[in-house]
Nucleic acid binder design. Structure first.
Lengths: 107, 107
DNA sequence: TTCGTTAATTCAATAAATCCGAACAATTGA
DNA sequence: TCAATTGTTCGGATTTATTGAATTAACGAA
C-alpha cells in the first residue's frame, strides 16, 4: 500500500474538491475531521471519522478520493491510518468554501 | 416535455446542490447565469449558457440536473428554454456557498 | 521468529450513473 | 401546413461506484 500520495496544492482543482465533498459519506468524514481539529486536533483513524455503518471497502475508497482531491492528509500510525483535514490549505485556495459547506445544516 | 418542475427550497439538499456544482460543464452554466444576472438579468437560453462544444443531449441532461437540484429555474420562451439562477434562494439556504464556488478561479 | 489481532487497502464482480447520436416534441414564422 | 429552431427523450455503450473476499501492514505476545 506504500506511503500515501498527496497532491500539491497547486494541483488541487475546485472540480476535484467539489466532487469529493458532493458525497454525504465523504462530507461526514470531513465534518468529523473538522470537529476533531477544533477540539483535539490529533487526527482521526479511518474508522473513527467514517459513518459507522459504512462497509470498510467503501470507506477506504472514500478516503482515497478525499486524499486524491487534496482534501485530507493521511499518515500511518501503528495499524491505523490517521487523517487530518487540509483545512488551511483549502481555505487559502478556495476561500469560504469549507466554511460554507461545513457550516450548512446538512439535509 | 411539459412544464418544468422545480423543487421547493425546503426540499433542496446540500447534497444535490454540491453534486450539481461538482461538474465543470454545469458550473460553467451556473457561472454564465450568474454573470447574466449581474448584467442583463434576463436569463439565458440553454445554448447561450452552456459550453459551446457540448453535445446538446448532454447539455440537456446537465440542465435537468441543475433544475432537479434546485439551482436553476426554467421557463419556456418561444422555442427557447430560458434559465435563471435561483441565486437568492440558494444564498438564503446555504450562505456563502455560491460566492465561494463562483468566486473561485476555476482550474 | 512466528502467531494472532487489528486496521485498512486492493481485487474483482456487479450495479448504477453518465455520455451522446438519433429520433422525437414544441414553438414559431413563412 | 411545412420548414426551421431549440430542447428533450430514448437506447446502448462507456464509465464510475459499491462491496464481499482476499491481501497487506503494523504491532504485541509467546
Amino acid at each position: 500500500m506504500q506511503n500515501f500520495i498527496h497532491p500539491d496544492m497547486k494541483d488541487v482543482t475546485l472540480d476535484a474538491v467539489l466532487y469529493a465533498l458532493a458525497d454525504p459519506a465523504r462530507r461526514a468524514i470531513v465534518r468529523a475531521l473538522a470537529a476533531d481539529r477544533a477540539c483535539e486536533g490529533t487526527g482521526l483513524s479511518c474508522n473513527a471519522a467514517a459513518p459507522p455503518d459504512l462497509p470498510k471497502a467503501t470507506m477506504s475508497q472514500h478516503y482515497a478520493k478525499l486524499r486524491a482531491a487534496g482534501v485530507v492528509r493521511a499518515t500511518r500510525k501503528g495499524v491505523s491510518v490517521i487523517h487530518t483535514l487540509r483545512c488551511d490549505e483549502i481555505n487559502a485556495k478556495f476561500p469560504g468554501l469549507l466554511p460554507a459547506i461545513l457550516g450548512a445544516v446538512d439535509v
